[in-house]
Design a protein around this nucleic acid. Sequence first.
DNA 1: ATAGGGTTAG
Length: 613
Amino acid sequence: MCGMSGGSSWNTRLRELAKEGLFKEGLQLYRQMLRSGDSPNAFSFPFALKACAALSLPLSGAQLHCHVVKTGCDPEPFVQTSLISMYCKCSLVENARRLFQQSPQSRRLTVCYNALIAGYSLNSQFSAALLLFRAMRRAGVMFNAITMLGLIPVCTVPLDLDFGMSLHACNVKCGVDADPSVGNCLLTMYVRCGSVDVARKLFDAMPEKGLITWNAMISGYAQNGLASHVLDLYHKMESVGMDPDPVTFVSVLSSCAHLGAQSVGRDIEWRILSRGFDFNPFLTNALINMYARCGNLARARMLFDEMPEKTLVSWTAILAGYGMHGQGETAVHLFNEMCGVGIQPDGAAFVSVLSACSHAGLTDKGLEYFSEMKRIYGINPGPEHYACVVDLLGRAGQLEEARELIYSMPVKPDGAVWGALLGACKIHRNVELAELAFERVVELEPTNVGYYVLLSNIYSEVENLEGVAKVRIMMRMRNLRKGPGCSYMELKKKVHLFLAGGRDHPQAKEIYSMLDGLEDLVKDSVGSKNKERRVEEVLAGTGVHSEKLAIAFGLLNTQPGTELVVIKNLRVCGDCHVFIKMVSKIVDRKIVVRDASRFHHFRNGVCSCNDYW
DNA sequence: ATAGGGTTAG
């Protein structure tokens, strides 16, 4: 290795590899250097340590630590800082802390504090990060923008918002917030603490919006369930000439999945291909998820099958898709196959397989998974898992068992758990248990209108008019109003929204006359026995339900034979599924009405997208 | 030459 002799050429090459992100190759080169008999020096270690951190190789990192000590480089602050950072990134925070504490005060430079503060924050040791920041200031060490980049992410939940805002104020006072990275970081903090509006104000006020700024805001909307805002902002991004990258597309695709907007998603897929971003596993997973949720299982499956390295997320996305669309057996089969190839399921994978079982009526199978979850995989079920199992038992009519399960929960049941029981009571017309579940759920989610409507519908089904009135009064006292029922349907890259009884769609006239025709056909096909009453029932009180409008619109504007997919905000209000079933038969069309409770912009039963686009 | 940071899927 005559050409490589002398430490500096090794170091140059190491630096190049680190810059390119070729960490594996960097470590190989470091080992090659040792074999060739050259000694690493203080300029070699930071690169090699960075590689261990990036690849999360604590053993190699510790070995490097030995080399550092052997070569006497350990007092060097740069090397010290690299070691601290490496240990933090390998989740060995204790080692990092010890190194920091052992170093003399005089060698604790700003970067050294920065590395440990960021490390604490990365490992969710929030108070430790804060305390160290205070100690830093007491010691008179200057902080800079990068200190803030470590510290700001400490604030992750709404409760942290006050502290986050004080950091923001502090940054403004020192002028640190002018650094675009700090701006991005603050933006992300507001988003994570649920203050999307504040984040947007910050976004609008930022003079130089980089790609990361756009991505932070777009993903912020996505994470807060504001899918239509994601698409708006994405279009704006394109219109100002900012080029999206794979990170952007991940959020956009996730929003298409939430909206059921398959044709927008297809358009995005085309852009991904034309930019050469295919083979990015994040994007492939996002595409699988989008197609699966939109019901295009064939395309989702094709992408999944062609994926060379399927991750846990890929498997979960595809099996959740099958589960959602009633193909529980396929979902279960995929889950088993996944375990068979050695991928360990996590909590989210269990949520998907459990809900697949409950939708497909595979009660025993679901219960089996639930018990395996703790026993074999050591995952403690959270409220989301209990909600699935309550739903599973409830749909199967085992209401008592469901109630018992809730009482035996080691974690506090949340609204979804009691809500699942309430939903089961609706199916099986159990008023007494419904009242109990309602009391609990309303304590936990007093403003979720969906539950009031659910109970009211249970009362009206058993003709308990007093009950219906009771719920109405309760809602009035709490100043709650059921938003109008709303449904939407995607057609040619536009989402068409329908409110119950609404007339503001451009095709309103045609839609209403189509609906009149449909209702007449349905009336005619009801048998003559108890005809009046049956007709009322079938037409569900003859109201102009939003899903009826959506279906009429769909029949007007689509080719015969295509499937109509309607998404509806409240699964529980104004059931007109008998009507839909009959229409479907009469016009010989497959009509699917999907429950939007898992669509975030329908949270609390209120639709937050209020326009066509 | 060397250290510290901001955006990504189920």
